[in-house]
Design a protein around this nucleic acid. Structure first.
Length: 473
DNA sequence: CCTGGAGTTGTCCTA
DNA sequence: TTAGGACAACTCCAG
C-alpha cells in the first residue's frame, strides 16, 4: 500500500549528512517522557537535520496484538491529538497503512531518511518484524535506534536472584519493589523537546484514511466517555492522585463509585509513561504522607508488569491455556455466548457489566472478574471466547493483561485462582453494589430476563468438571 | 539439597 | 447472626 498523502514538504533528496531523522510512533503516543523521541530531536538539532514522524497502521504483521474495534477508535483520536502536538513542534506526522517494514522503507526512500528511531512494543509478537527491519535499514545504510519503553522494566528482565523467572505474583512484586527503592524515578523521565523551527505547521488531515473507525457507529459512540491524547492522560493522572488515590484501596472495590484511575487506555497507548505515574506516586508511597491507596495502586501497576513478563515468557498463552490439561474443560455454546455478550443472561451484575462494556468500552475491574467467572465456569465456554470479546470491545484492551486476566479467572494460568473459586454474581452484587446503584445505572428499567441458568447447579457442575480433570491427572 | 510456608480478589455449610 | 473451616493439591519461593 502506498502513502496516504505527502505533507507539504520539499521532496526528499538523496540522503546525505543533512538527511531526515525519522521517528516511528508505535504505542508511545506522547512527546513528554519519551526518551527515544527526545534523543531523535536532540541528535537532529546537533547535526542540523530535520525530524519527521510516522505512524504505520500495520494490517499485516501485528498478529494477535492487532487492535480491536474499540481500541482502534481510541487510537484514531489519540493520533489526531498527537499530530497537532507534533505540528506545534514543527514536525509532520506521516500516516501509512500496510506492513511496517515496507512502509518504513518506502518512506525512508521518499524522504531521504538517514536514521530511524522507535520504541519497541512491549509484546513478543512482531519482534521478528523489528529484527527484519533493522537488518533491512542497516543494509540501506540507515541508522537504527530502537529503544525499550512502555513497561517499567523490559518484559522478562525482572528475575529471581538465581536468574530464574517468577511464576507467582507476590515474590515478583517484592523483587520489583526492591528495585524501585534503588532507582531515581526522575531519571527515567524527560521533558517535551523544544520546537524544531522548520517552518512546518500544517497538520496532515489524513488520519481518517487509516480506516481505524471502519465505518461503524458503535465504536464512535464510546468516545463520549473518553478523551484520548497526552494532555488528557496527564490531567487524568493529576485528578486521580488528587482526588481518588488515598481512598483507592477501598474505592476500587465498588463499581458504582468512580474509584478507578481510568488510566488503562492511556497506559496501553503510551499517552503516559508508567515511570511518570510511579514518580508522581512517590510522595504517597513513602514517609508521613504514605497511603494504603497509593500502595495498592502501585500493586496494580506491578500486575501490569507481571502480565508482560508472563506473555514474553509464553507468547502462545494468548490462545492456549498455560495449564494445557484444562483445554477439555470448555465447550462451544454460541447461543449462551451471544446472551453473555448482549448482557441478557438474567444475572443482574453480569448484564450490567456487559452493558457498561458495550456502552463505554470499559468495565469495572471487579465486574470483569464476575462476568469472566460466569462465562468460563457457570456457562462453561472457553476463556478464549471471552478474551476475544473483551479484545474487540475494550478501549484499554491489552494483550498481556487480557490474556493473564482470563487465564487467571479460568484457573488455567500460572498463579491462577483455585478452581473452586466460582464468583456468585448475586452475592457479589450484594457485597459490592449493596444499593444496587451500578446495576440500575446500566440496566435502568429494562425488563429483566429470567436467569439463563441456575447458579447453584451450574457451580456444582463446574466444580465437578474441574475435579474430574484433576483426578484424571 | 531440603523444607516449611505461602499463594489477588470466593462460596457455602456448620456450629 | 457470625465466624471458621472445607474445598485440593501442587508448585513456587526463600531461608
Amino acid at each position: 500500500m502506498s502513502s496516504l498523502r505527502q505533507a507539504e514538504l520539499p521532496a526528499g533528496g538523496a540522503k546525505a549528512q543533512n538527511g531526515v531523522r525519522l521517528f516511528w510512533f508505535r504505542r508511545d503516543l506522547r512527546l513528554a517522557d519519551n526518551r527515544a523521541f527526545s534523543a531523535c530531536l536532540k541528535q537532529a538539532k546537533a547535526q542540523g537535520q530535520t525530524v519527521e514522524a510516522v505512524y504505520v497502521h500495520d494490517v499485516v504483521g501485528a498478529g494477535p496484538a492487532a487492535p480491536g474495534a474499540a481500541a482502534r477508535c481510541y487510537l484514531h483520536f489519540s493520533l489526531i491529538d498527537l499530530q497537532a502536538r507534533l505540528a506545534a513542534l514543527g514536525i509532520p506526522l506521516h500516516l501509512r497503512v500496510g506492513d511496517n517494514l515496507g512502509e518504513i522503507e518506502s518512506l525512508c526512500n521518499a524522504r531521504g531518511v538517514a536514521a530511524v528511531y522507535w520504541n519497541r512494543l512491549p509484546e513478543p509478537h512482531g519482534l521478528a518484524g523489528d529484527v527484519a527491519l533493522i537488518k533491512r535499514l542497516t543494509a540501506l545504510d540507515i541508522r537504527v535506534h530502537p529503544h525499550e519503553q512502555g513497561t517499567l522494566w523490559v518484559p522478562d528482565s525482572v528475575r529471581k536472584p538465581d536468574g530464574g523467572r517468577y511464576r507467582v505474583f507476590t515474590p515478583f512484586a517484592r523483587q520489583a519493589r526492591a528495585q524501585l527503592m534503588l532507582l531515581d524515578t526522575q531519571a527515567e523521565l524527560c521533558p517535551v523537546p523544544p520546537p524544531m523551527g522548520t517552518g512546518f505547521s500544517a497538520p496532515d488531515t489524513a488520519i481518517d484514511a487509516l480506516g481505524l473507525l471502519d465505518g461503524r457507529a458503535w465504536p464512535h459512540k464510546l468516545m463520549r466517555y473518553w478523551n484520548p491524547g497526552e494532555s488528557a492522560a496527564q490531567a487524568r493522572l493529576s485528578h486521580f492522585v488528587a482526588t481518588g488515590l488515598a481512598a483507592y484501596a477501598e474505592g476500587r472495590e465498588f463499581p458504582a463509585l468512580d474509584g478507578s484511575s481510568r488510566l488503562s487506555a492511556a497506559l496501553h497507548w503510551g499517552e503516559i509513561n508508567p515511570w511518570r505515574i510511579v514518580h508522581t506516586l512517590q510522595p504517597a508511597l513513602h514517609g508521613a504522607e504514605a497511603t494504603l491507596g497509593a500502595e495498592r495502586f502501585l500493586t496494580e501497576l506491578l500486575w501490569r508488569e507481571f502480565a508482560h513478563h508472563l506473555l514474553t515468557a509464553a507468547p502462545d498463552s494468548v490462545s492456549r491455556s498455560l495449564h494445557g490439561g484444562y483445554e477439555a474443560l470448555w465447550q462451544s455454546n454460541p447461543e449462551a455466548l451471544d446472551r453473555w455478550q448482549r448482557g441478557e443472561t438474567g444475572l443482574a451484575l453480569v448484564d450490567a457489566g456487559m452493558r457498561e462494556l458495550w456502552e463505554t468500552g470499559w468495565m469495572h475491574t471487579r465486574v470483569r472478574m464476575v462476568v469472566a467467572s460466569f462465562l468460563t465456569k457457570n456457562i462453561g465456554v472457553h476463556w478464549r471466547e471471552g478474551a476475544a470479546w473483551f479484545w474487540d470491545t475494550l478501549v484499554d484492551a491489552d494483550l498481556a493483561s487480557n490474556t493473564m486476566g482470563w487465564q487467571w479467572v479460568a484457573g488455567c494460568g500460572v498463579d491462577a485462582a483455585p478452581y473452586f473459586r466460582v464468583f456468585n454474581p448475586d452475592v457479589q452484587a450484594e457485597r459490592f453494589d449493596p444499593q444496587g446503584a451500578y446495576i440500575r445505572r446500566w440496566l435502568g428499567n429494562r425488563p429483566r430476563p429470567p436467569a439463563m441458568l441456575d447458579l447453584k447447579q451450574s457451580r456444582l457442575a463446574a466444580l465437578a468438571r474441574y475435579q474430574a480433570l484433576a483426578a484424571h491427572h
